[in-house]
Design a binder for these strands. Sequence first.
DNA 1: CCGGACGCCTGTCGGC
DNA 2: TGCCGACAGGCGTCCG
Length: 271
Amino acid sequence: MPELPEVETTRRGVAAHLVGKRLLGAEVRNPKLRQPVPADLTARLAGVRVRAVERRAKYLLVRWQEDSLLLHLGMSGSLRIVRDREAPGRHDHFDLLLPRQLRLRYRDPRRFGLALLAGARPELHPLLRDLGPEPLEPGFSGETFVQAFRGRRASVKQLLLDGGIVAGVGNIYACEALFLARVRPSTPAGKLSAARCGRLATAVREVLQHAVDVGGTTLRDFVGAEGEPGYFQHELAVYGRAGLPCRACGGPIQVKRLGQRSTFSCGRCQR
DNA sequence: CCGGACGCCTGTCGGC
DNA sequence: TGCCGACAGGCGTCCG
């Protein structure tokens, strides 16, 4: 579910309620996520003052002086600010307790997500250590792709999904960026010219920035921290549009499997 | 090192 | 109506 724009939308909504506040603890109802939620989560969180809520790739980091909480939303996760009295649903696995009878509620039906304590320097955590550059930060450019794609025979689509090359791009935005850049998803990455790498980097940045600006993509269940849906689904050019006319040339949008993921593209616009 | 397949888990949808 | 398979926004692991 959540890719960079959805996680960033969540981060902004969550940060407004957490930064500078003291946490009162946690209530864990089901610790079974990708890895078990730490059994001592309440003890570790109680009384700490949150300094920042950051995002790295699709991870969220709640940071305080001595430690940090690393959160991932998996395929189906969301975080919402709710009132104490609001009853949790079947898939609301834990809450962080906030002042003023508020809670940060973690929901994840498929439980592919994650909540781990990651220390005072979470950037050194194994899950974060080897990530590629943030596409919306300086330090990411066509040169990133030129170097990462060199000698690689895998498709450019598959490498776009590799967080070690560029952070935060998932299936939706990989398809959309390739369309914007007019690059065929199945092209072996190593065969892309520097010019096309440049176009692709620009497209990645543009599509992600635009999606952040409109609150992400809501296909079925994504909502931001205040429960609001995103709007980027109305602007998808190819993702989920198999058989529909390309918005640029009118030709049919195709869907193929590439690395076990559905890949949408326009056979005429993308070469 | 690289690329491909698989599994984790629940929900939904389409076809029969 | 019910059943069954395919598929879904991610990602770590295993194998050749």
